[in-house]
Design a binder for these strands. Structure first.
Lengths: 252, 252
DNA sequence: CAGTGGTCTAGACCACCAA
DNA sequence: TGGTGGTCTAGACCACTGC
């Protein structure tokens, strides 16, 4: 054992190897990866070393462990993690709301291919003018009384290359959350995101889409989302109404 | 070894014992706790079991490990963790800004003892009418050109009991961040917090204190902060100007 | 140099799951 | 029943710190 080519702990090297396999798509989302013993023999290390590598990947939400069953590649399709990246929740955040799976309607208002502006290109680590997919959509929540409230307006820019063939039709016919669809249809797994939050007023057009007045304070949430290896792949600007909902955060 | 009175992993029991010692103040913030070997003999378990318990406490930011030196009780006084609970950062978030330690001026506008309202009491797990300390303050940032901008307005309610003797003078004379002072003077260590974020407009009074117009959109950040064992001990409502700063968040 | 945390191993046993 | 992850141990060695 103990190959140590460059100097880093063995388990970090194993972690990098597993990461590479994930990235290469050797194991797809929701599939099981080989057992700890198999990985140990494959990499010629002890089970404990594999365990530590897998522990870290599980802590970063790239893998999911299930005792007695195996270790699985994280997926956005699993029921309880669909809202992993959506921090806007109802003010009466009761079990009820979670049970009812929050009837959300997604309306795509725009979907086309564009040339990246300097800002977008920089955030996605592309060159200005490179092809990107632009999407605008509105999320509308329906409460128990049947009242519909447009609540979230999103402008989304996706790196063009990984999303060849994405268009309005394919978006519209997908009923799954967007990240679950990206994963299933394009093999793009969102793993991490940074957000910057500000309070703003909407423009005329934005106000119309959210059915609010232009002097309504809204949250503007600017997100950059990453796949494996810190590769930025999506820029997303969300406008959130916070009259009956709030952005929740836990500080540790 | 292997006592297992109730059923939970040994390392969880060890973790609970260490937590109890922290809570009881056996080891003060910034002090070293006993070495892993000492703890192992003290609790009659192997070093590996202690290690796993300490690992989890370190992951939760209750302990800090330093190779070759020891394991230390987390503190809000340490230079690089002073802003652990303040997520509002400059838009040009460069090294410079961090270096310069962001000249902040804290102005206490109010400090008195009050009877808890129903809302505050509930959040702090007290009874309506119990004694609480109320503080209002303004944080003003000074940039390199010497321009001062009042940026954060905070209303703070503290559980009365742990903060006996806290008054305007003691607050005013403390130059350290508030949580560092709480820790040093009252033995209260903030460990975790939940925040709810909305976009709002300020009232007349709030607008005056932040030197903005009443139609300026602001972030309202409602925080409940906890000590050991998930005991709520502070309710804090912040109003943040986001014209040159933003609330940053990392999603995983 | 001695003492601390960090890594790695090998092996035992437990808890959970499915067939 | 056999396979999976989860716990626990004992011992070896490494890397960092400070005297």
């Amino acid at each position: 054992m103990q190959t140590t080519p460059s100097f880093s702990p063995l388990y970090q090297q194993i972690k990098a190897l597993i990461l590479r396999s994930l990235q290469a798509g050797e194991w797809k989302p929701a599939e099981a990866i080989p057992s700890e013993m198999e990985l140990a023999t494959r990499y010629s290390v002890s089970q404990g070393t594999v365990r530590k590598a897998v522990d870290e990947l599980a802590a970063e939400n790239l893998l999911m462990r299930r005792q007695g069953k195996g270790t699985f590649v994280a997926t956005h399709s699993a029921r309880h993690v669909q809202t992993r990246f959506l921090r806007l929740v109802s003010d009466q955040n009761n079990a009820e709301t979670l049970e009812q799976a929050e009837r959300v309607e997604r309306t795509i208002t725009t979907c086309n291919r564009q040339r990246a502006t300097a800002d977008i290109a920089k955030a996605l680590k592309l060159k200005t003018g490179d092809s990107v997919v632009y999407i605008q959509r509105v999320l509308t929540y329906k409460n128990a009384s049947g009242v519909s409230t447009p609540t979230i307006l999103e402008d989304i820019w996706l790196a063009g290359n990984p999303f060849k063939g994405l268009n309005l039709e394919r978006l519209a016919e997908s009923k799954a959350p967007m990240y679950a669809m990206f994963e299933a249809e394009f093999g793009v797994n969102m793993v991490r995101a940074d957000e910057q939050i500000r309070a703003v007023n909407p423009t005329q057009e934005q106000a119309a889409l959210l059915q609010v007045k232009t002097d309504t304070p809204l949250l503007r949430v600017e997100r950059i989302a990453y796949t494996y290896n810190d590769t930025p792949i999506e820029v997303r600007t969300g406008l959130y109404r916070t009259d009956t909902r709030h952005y929740r955060n836990e500080l540790q």
